[in-house]
Design a binder for these strands. Structure first.
Lengths: 194, 194
DNA sequence: ACAAACATAGAACGATCGGTTCGGAAATTC
DNA sequence: GAATTTCCGAACCGATCGTTCTATGTTTGT
């Protein structure tokens, strides 16, 4: 292999697929290596442990989500639609981002530290984005928000509140209608009534 | 618990859900019992081993499929639609019936005997149904088949041939278009051209 | 009320599994 | 052809998992 970094990427992609299906615990190094047509011990040349692979996978997926979110915002113009897109993409993504939850809810995996680190960094980013969206909408006269910081936090709290039940409920319809409900709630409390 | 048989059923249902997600090997007795809010060893009062549970699950799902197929045939009138329905339901069901394949393709599970038994019985049933469909279509002048027995076997062989790749390919579109292709092939070779 | 049966579960056990290490063999680079 | 990179089989060992055993609670029949 010419580029070591490229091969690490391949491992991350493959491991991600298996992790997302079986979770951290049930995924074995043997499976990962077999999926890559390599010997089990060869993986250790690129990653020093199974956990390190998992960390890389979670980080990778977090970055994926970040990109999805920013493009979703840029896609539309009006602040209303930006916020709407943001929430939709976020929720849909989290519904798929099962690795994350497999790890968080696997009580036997008590090494959350790095996940907590990613999560808290992520929270700050999300908060900043939401505040920006609110601020722009405010100055354009579309929103009417006094304290953008706390409103952003309130919205984020709502979104987070939706994450856990999202994990249990399977029906797509349910997710969509719940999203619509949340959205209409947020907008009715936010939109300037003329 | 009043009815022991009822509780066996509950175990089968729960185990089926877990097996179909994780496969035979990765599913632990502990998980099954936890999902039932019971102690691990309590399960052994109803089933004598993990394999016995799995056998019951496979049998249960096979019966489920049988029912689906017969109702799918009864739903429509014309022989063409009957055959069409039959093949569609069969393929869709097999795509979902992952337990079966998890077992068959898990090379470490070398106790196929009971699966082979179910399978061969199933083959005979399917063959009989297909022959009947062809026979009825024939006598109604919709099909033109000389040897319904061998034609039925040929169709069954085609269907079986589709099962394995079905297991690897993920895209729904692909399955559908392949199904259509198979169907049009079968019908063009079967339908009486006037 | 009290056996007999039914139902449950905690503890322990032996076998297997699975993550990791290590030494060295291929393959590639210089 | 030496040096470096990449790969892997074998082995280690702690954890895991299916199963058994024993004991305790719970229902049923009389």
């Amino acid at each position: 292999m010419v580029d070591k970094e490229e091969y690490r990427r391949r491992i991350i992609l493959t491991a991600s697929r298996i992790f997302s299906h079986y979770g951290f615990r049930k995924t074995t190094m043997d499976e990962i290596s077999r999926a890559l047509n390599k010997g089990k011990s060869s993986i250790y040349y690129y990653f020093s442990s199974k956990e390190e692979i998992f960390e890389a996978v979670v980080l990778y997926e977090a970055n994926q989500l970040r990109r999805q979110l920013t493009t979703a915002i840029k896609e539309v113009e009006s602040p209303t639609e930006k916020l709407r897109n943001y929430i939709f993409v976020r929720m849909k993504a989290f519904a798929k981002l099962s690795n994350y939850y497999n790890a968080v809810f696997d009580k036997n995996l008590d090494h959350y530290e790095f996940i907590e680190k990613i999560r808290s960094r992520y929270d700050r980013e999300e908060l900043a984005i939401l505040r920006l969206l609110l601020y722009v909408g405010n100055s354009r006269g579309v929103f009417e928000v006094r304290e953008s910081e706390y409103t952003a936090m309130a919205i984020l709290t709502m979104l987070k509140g939706m994450e856990v039940p999202l994990f249990w409920r399977r029906r797509e319809i349910d997710i969509n209608s719940r999203l619509e409900a949340i959205l209409s709630l947020i907008f009715d409390g936010i939109l300037k009534r003329e």
